[in-house]
Simulated scan of single mutants.
Amino acid sequence: MSAPSVTLVVRPRGKPIKNLPETITVSSDASTAEIFERIADVSKFSIHRLRVTKGSDGAPVSNVGDVTVHETGLRNKSAIDVKDLGPQISWRTVFIVEYLGPLLIHPLVYLARPIIYGTSAPASPLQKLTLLLCVIHFAKREFETLFVHRFSSATMPARNIFKNSGYYWLFSGLNLAYWTYGPNSPAAKPSNPLLTYLGVALFTIGEVCNYSTHLTLKNLRKPGTTERGIPQGLGFDIVTCPNYMFEAIAWIGVALVNWSLATVIFIIMAVGQMGVWAWKKERRYRKEFGDKYKRKRYAILPGIW
């Protein structure tokens, strides 16, 4: 016997959506993704621009294939509110663009040293090493974006690409490159070899361990779903987001190589932002998994934050 159909009353929320249907009819055992498909088909809006919430309590209706309409509590004649989120862009595209900036800016500033700084003096070994480390870091980021990361949301507001890219292009790109490759940079002068070796070691450990945690996070989510598991393994018993911790360690390694104040400022800014994201994730884990989740005292830096 086939499941009964339910008719849902569709209401706009916020600015009007052209051609938004007044009602849609779906099977009660259909996935919630079908609600989005029906609305998008009639309104000619991208699924990713739509936010659907229950009219009764404002609870979000997720665009997923493993939750049925009946399981959400929606019944015949139930109301759903639909909001236009505005133009969207994929998370993957944003990540590619924001990391591409520093990946190109560092080599360009390095090669343009005679023009930018008015000097024909060759770059120092530490400046060359800093360039190599930065290129490796952001090339790794691009690789992970293309082949490792799975995103819980397909898109974000398109305007975010300017904010996200501006942060990376300016602070880890132009700011870091300009103050590193100049003739008066600390990296242009000899440094203690032991500190340089320590910096390279920290960078290598940080990058390798960061990649390992990203693989762990990737394997928590099955392809095509947004369902997550509880992360375990390297670093996850210590802090909420060891990927951020290892990221910080890698950049501390860069700072020990180039001794640039710009690098230190970038580390402080990055750790501050990553710490905010990590605490949000800690709260989400506690809410989502309850007693199954081992609560963390520190989100990103053990003993500190």
Rank of each mutant, 00 (worst) to 15 (best):
A123G: 08
D41P: 02
R38S: 09
G229P: 02
S90K: 15
R38A: 11
F236S: 07
E98N: 01
S28H: 06
V109T: 09
L146P: 01
V264D: 06
I105T: 10
V52D: 03
A201W: 02
H137P: 14
P21V: 07
H137F: 02
V6I: 14
L111K: 13
T119H: 01
V69N: 11
Y293F: 03
M274L: 15
L301G: 02
T93H: 04
P60I: 00
R295E: 11
L146I: 13
A79E: 05
I39N: 01
A3F: 01
K281Q: 13
T240E: 07
L176C: 11
A270N: 05
A59H: 10
V135M: 05
E144L: 10
M156G: 01
T180C: 13
D41K: 09
I80V: 11
E144N: 06
L261H: 07
I96W: 14
I47C: 02
I89T: 15
I116T: 03
V9D: 02
P190C: 12
A154F: 12
I265M: 04
R286S: 14
R283P: 05
K163F: 11
L301S: 03
V61T: 08
K189N: 06
L104F: 14
Q232S: 07
K222Y: 09
P186H: 13
V64I: 14
R297M: 05
I252E: 00
A40F: 06
V69E: 07
S90L: 08
I47P: 00
W279Q: 04
P193G: 12
